[in-house]
Structure formats: C-alpha cells, structure tokens
C-alpha cells in the first residue's frame, strides 16, 4: 500500500517535471532565433524567453516588419505568447535630389522662366552652373536664389550687383 502510494507520487511528480520542462526556454530561444535568421529583413531583434513567453526587442523598419517578426515567433513550437517590444525606426531620408540634377535644356528653361519677370538680369549656362549677371534688389536676389534652388541648379551669382 505504502509502496503503491510512493510509486504514484513518483509517477505524478515525474510527469509534472516532464511537462513543465519541455520544451525548455533555452530551446525555444534557439528555435526562435533560427526562425528569425531565415528572414533577412529581421535583423537586430533581441529575444528573451521565460516560461514559454517570448519577449522581443530591437528595431524594425516598419509596422509590417514588426508584425511579420511577431508572426514568425508565434509560430515556433513551444511559444505560448509573444510580447512584442520592437520599436519602429523609419528609414533615413533619401539624399538631396540636387546632388544628381543635370543642367539639361528643360532645367535651363525653368531658370529662364523664373528670371522672366526680373528685369536687368541675364543668365548664361557654363558647365553645370547658371552664371547670372546684372543689378538686383535684395528682395529679387532672394527670389532668384530660391528659384535656382527649387530648380536644383548650381549657380555663380558673383556677377549680381546691388541695385541702388
């Protein structure tokens, strides 16, 4: 009788031990990391597992990436739930477009159009620059520079003098 009782206790505790330990958190972590590594867009995420609950950290480029990560992790065997603490880092802005602008005919025309209403200023196109000459008021000088910048045209305005 006593022996049977003892055996039962052994069996029950062994079962409990077996259930609670499988799969182990460390194994889950390895499996999750392996699953994430298969997707090249998921880099820089950190994984922490405790009692089958996975906590994710790190940076994602957008919402889709964040949700995608979470889906992959949730699908790993042994994961009970996922706490997604990933933050979203927007991609850096593209470099200024003026870096690659060429002074083609259409661009030259834009400059000429912009100067049309400013009397006494001439423009020549030399190399990659608009070379301006003439006498201008301070207000018009500002307008000319703004116009050149919006057309993304490099300029030489040393020939612009101040109109008295």
């Amino acid at each position: 009788m006593k022996l049977t009782k003892l055996l039962m206790v052994v069996v029950v505790s062994a079962t409990m031990l077996f259930v609670s330990c499988k799969p182990k958190d460390a194994d889950i972590k390895t499996a999750v990391e392996k699953a994430l590594a298969a997707d090249p867009s998921m880099t820089g995420t950190t994984i922490d597992v405790k009692d089958g609950i996975v906590t994710m950290g790190g940076e994602c480029k957008d919402d889709a990436c964040k949700a995608g990560c979470e889906k992959i992790v949730a699908g790993v065997k042994g994961v009970k739930s996922v706490v997604n603490n990933c933050t979203i880092t927007p991609p850096p802005p593209p470099p200024p477009a003026s870096l690659t602008t060429v002074l083609d005919e259409a661009t030259q025309q834009k400059v000429k159009d912009g100067l049309k209403d400013i009397a006494g200023v001439t423009v020549e196109f030399v190399g990659d620059k608009a070379v301006l000459k003439g006498a201008v008021t301070q207000a018009n000088r500002m307008k000319i520079m703004q116009m050149l910048a919006s057309a993304k045209v490099l300029s030489d305005v040393t020939g612009l003098t101040e109109k008295k």
């Binding site: 200024p96 477009a97 003026s98 620059k129 000088r141 500002m142 520079m145 703004q146 910048a149 919006s150 993304k152 490099l154 300029s155 030489d156 305005v157 040393t158 612009l160 101040e162």
Partner: peptide
Amino acid sequence: LWALYAKIDPNMASGDLMMNID
C-alpha cells in the same frame, strides 16, 4: 531658413549651398 542663409552668406554669393527646401 532663407533669411538665415542670407545672414550666414552675405548676398548668397559663395555658391556653396544648394537649399532645395519646399
């Protein structure tokens, strides 16, 4: 921003800034 440009570079004549701000 444009007023600052004119302040830093008088007459904006150096040709060293392309301020393509819209």
